[in-house]
Design a binder for these strands. Sequence first.
DNA 1: CGCGCATTTGAGGACTGTCAACTTCCGTGG
DNA 2: CCACGGAAGTTGACAGTCCTCAAATGCGCG
Lengths: 256, 256
Amino acid sequence: MRASDIDRVRELPIFADVAPEIFRVATAGAHVQRFPAGTMLLLEGDPVDFLYVLLEGQVELHGTWNDHDTVMTILRPVSTLILAAVVLDTAALMSARTLERCEILMIPGDAIRTAMRLDSHFAMAVSRDLAGSYRGVVRNMKNIKLRNSTERLANYLLALRAVGDGGSIVRLHHEKRVLASLLGMTPENLSRSFAALNKCGVAVQGSVVTLSNIAALEHLAKPDPLIDNYAPRGGEIVGDADAEIWLSEHGREKPR
Amino acid sequence: MRASDIDRVRELPIFADVAPEIFRVATAGAHVQRFPAGTMLLLEGDPVDFLYVLLEGQVELHGTWNDHDTVMTILRPVSTLILAAVVLDTAALMSARTLERCEILMIPGDAIRTAMRLDSHFAMAVSRDLAGSYRGVVRNMKNIKLRNSTERLANYLLALRAVGDGGSIVRLHHEKRVLASLLGMTPENLSRSFAALNKCGVAVQGSVVTLSNIAALEHLAKPDPLIDNYAPRGGEIVGDADAEIWLSEHGREKPR
DNA sequence: CGCGCATTTGAGGACTGTCAACTTCCGTGG
DNA sequence: CCACGGAAGTTGACAGTCCTCAAATGCGCG
């Protein structure tokens, strides 16, 4: 691993409080690897030998059953992948695919587990990461079970706005069919949901969305801090790092 | 806390590897409390001061939005509640309600976090619990997004059978409307899904369900080890502790 | 026995998925 | 520079799934 990579890795939340010697243990045998867009990093059911840390690019986690598949989450830097499977030393439940060219740190699972055993602060950092991920999926689940597709889209757009400049124009980060699957609908219905949001001042042109009536959109969306991981308090916009992380993967909470 | 309680707590997976002095730290200020059925233990959005460990009875975790609510999971002994919120020292995302008379161990959140800082083995146990919970929700999410309601019910019944004696008669653990919400449908549609499963040899009488054609049921259900947390390999029945835990909360994985 | 509650059944409508045709966008190559 | 091909996105028609409301049935307990 190059020195510049080591510096970057050292900054990761998961390594923030770790003692230098433990950091060396954890990153022993680690290496940074680059992947082109569209690469399958791992298939669901695969045994997991490495912890992946996404440093650059976007990665999609998806699940498959009976010839259907669904995007479970989309990760953006800096995020860990399959940490839960590494901790339990078991098979992955989701497949991972790069959506863009990616730069990924790969750390042997053994090294992670050893470092956890040696350093309680590292083990706590892992716990916080996992706790955030858990709460992210729970938010996602509430979103899916309690809202219909148009409401999910409306909230997604409001979240996009919150992490952006808070202006009335937002850019979609993903292809529409990927977004549709992430939001639990078909591409066709995503189109129709966008059309339905016209009456709330939503206009779409390619990946650029204009929100000209936030009040109407919020009235339909009814954002909720216990589902949407940004802080929509009193109409004030809070575009903090939490929200950035939320949007990127639609559901991981930042520790602390 | 009574001596008999301490012995029981000592057996919990989360305390298995913990040094005696750390165990005392963790359980300092802890106490066992009994609650009648139907008690709201906490409301979503509440700050979390205690880790709850369910020792007896059933607890439902549910979420609410816009006058709707949905059962997210149902816990049976021995399970931790809101461990993620305790680790992050933040508000609960779900409400908790007892479904029966319950016996619950309450441990101050501070004590948990202190014990994690002092003992890497305890922190690892917390990580494993969280990792299992995370994977449980992921399974749940795949179940909801990839299957329709009848398929979810069919798989639920097969899972019930797998944890029971493997015979053709299973007992439902919950009221049907609770089960319906857990499976992401209305009570009316649960009835209709049961009716639809008649042709697969499913007969219902109150809480007793007879499965007289497992092959047909499996053909419809298409159980998958990456969604359903029991091991349906080659028609062999594996009623292990993992599966018990799965059913109880419909989605927590047992560490290791 | 009768009341209250859970469950079931039916009818209708809302939401969502599927299929097919069409349009738009974009990169390639003539 | 423009034509072309392919993929992505949109639209319409239709069907399947699911929800809502209302009424009927069944069950348990006082």
